[in-house]
Design a protein around this nucleic acid. Structure first.
Lengths: 283, 283
DNA sequence: CATATCACCTCACGTTACGTCAGGCGCAAG
DNA sequence: CTTGCGCCTGACGTAACGTGAGGTGATATG
């Protein structure tokens, strides 16, 4: 910007007109190899010294190289750049190219944002836990990786108002939930095989139940269990739910073994079942 | 998330334990070639059918693949992933890896943001101008590309309060300024060679002067000209300014030829010079 | 004058994470 | 018997250079 205010033309110090490749490289900041490469690929072909065969760069090449660097900065490939290097003005088609670049970059940025979020949440968990099982962490990360996809899938089978309560919304909620899940899985590993009478097992289930309630809320939980309870009255709906579960399983691997899952299902019905039946009875 | 609430272990439908490569590919969403590649690189080596030599994937491989996909999603290379695939728990060193990834991603995102901003401003300019000279646009883009670097360089030689006024701050200011520069350069091209007496030339300079004032402000402009006017009293300072100009020239190529620059300098002194002298005389 | 160094040249392979053929095998159906 | 399917291995292509290896003309030094 400033430069424009100066009018350095006054000095008129006609600088050295030509550069050797290393001088040119230094003054432009690109590597010698890159200049070789651009020459080889017919993107920037400087004159040659007839006798020595050395490349001789001039001011004009400087301008060309600036073009190249600029278009690279916009995210274009050298092939695209080569195509645009011919013409001397940018016209409307260049706008389209820019627009295309724009949407590409926006997509990239979204991916990066998701990954960053996942990383930050993971770092937080690791800092508190010191050591975490592979499977559990992978499961969580996979879950973060496609939170959006999961929500969209869920939209197909769950009503909007329930949806809003179903997924942890704030960053804090998410962290609490994930933290809770981690400790829960640890305890699953630890107590696996014990009976539903065991107090530690009961404590584990209580804590887990409370965690879910904390995030989801009682009424939403009711609705959820209604949806997923196998009251098979609606064939079509059941198929949709089945497909949904399949897809989620593909996206998010289970952090525990099938045996552990089975055991968990067993003790849950053993322990919680009576409670739920009681509540049902109240209606 | 939901899946955890279901306890599908109840169904206990021990699914098919093994997959052919194409089944495995379909159910995980990765390509067959990728699976071949991971095998070849010892990242995921499934069992083989003794007789046919076909790869036989199991549930365990599904878990492994999920690990791989997750770590890839975090931006790690397959080499890094291979290293982490050995251990079965993530420990503190993994936090470091994540932190490193994090800063890498943040850098990437910053680059993207800068490029996006430049693209959007360029699209705006192109939409209004329909056709723009290569050199001018490149110059503008190069300028956008390292706005931050330019500001930092300027900090070395210009006082903070002037700084704040020197660079266009808001998006709107930037757009006005860039738009004005574009038309200014067009007119430079058009009128190149004419004398300072020419009314069109004078109009051009007036408009340009007004544009600068609009963005920079009168008092700051005074200070700027003071800094850059060749009142050589301070050797050291002069060298700093010289180095600054050099660096800016390296970063931002001039959008006009040296002849045009020289002409511009000439008519500026011819036309503006007297005016400035008058003002000086007032002090 | 011989030689060491320098800057340059070309040629060519390595990198990442696969995509894309090409040629060949065993197995089932028509 | 042939056709086709699904699988196998091997090998080359991709983007944008990085990194040597080996050779040449010009200059600096002993």
């Amino acid at each position: 910007m400033i430069k424009l205010l100066i009018g350095k033309g006054l000095e008129a110090d006609m600088k050295k007109e030509t550069f050797s490749i290393s001088e040119f490289a230094k003054s432009t900041g690109v590597s010698v190899r890159t200049l070789h490469y651009y020459d080889e690929k017919n993107i920037l072909k400087p004159k040659r010294d007839e006798h020595t065969g050395h490349r001789v760069y001039e001011q004009e090449d400087m301008i060309q190289l600036h073009k190249i660097m600029t278009m690279k900065f916009l995210g274009m490939s050298l092939d695209e750049i080569k195509a645009y290097m011919q013409a001397n003005t940018f016209d409307l088609s260049f706008i389209d190219t820019l627009r295309l670049q724009e949407s590409k970059l926006i997509k990239d940025r979204e991916q990066i944002d998701i990954a960053l979020d996942a990383i930050q949440r993971t770092v937080y968990l690791l800092e508190n836990e010191k050591e975490v099982d592979h499977a559990v962490l992978i499961s969580l990360l996979a879950s973060m990786q496609n939170e959006k996809k999961q929500e969209e899938l869920a939209k197909g089978i769950i009503k909007d108002d329930v949806m809003k309560k179903m997924f942890p919304q704030t960053a804090k909620e998410k962290m609490i939930f994930e933290q809770g899940l981690l400790t829960f899985y640890k305890r699953v590993r630890k107590h696996f095989g014990k009976s539903a009478d065991d107090p530690e097992v009961q404590q584990m289930l209580d804590d887990f139940y409370r965690l879910i309630l904390e995030v989801v809320g009682m009424d939403s939980l009711k609705e959820l269990t209604d949806i997923f309870s196998l009251n098979i009255e609606d064939k079509e709906n059941e198929e949709r739910i089945e497909a949904y579960i399949q897809e989620i399983e593909r996206l998010v691997p289970s952090p525990i073994t099938e045996e552990e899952e089975a055991w968990l299902g067993q003790i849950t019905t053993d322990y919680m079942g009576p409670l739920w039946d009681e509540e049902e009875g109240e209606n």
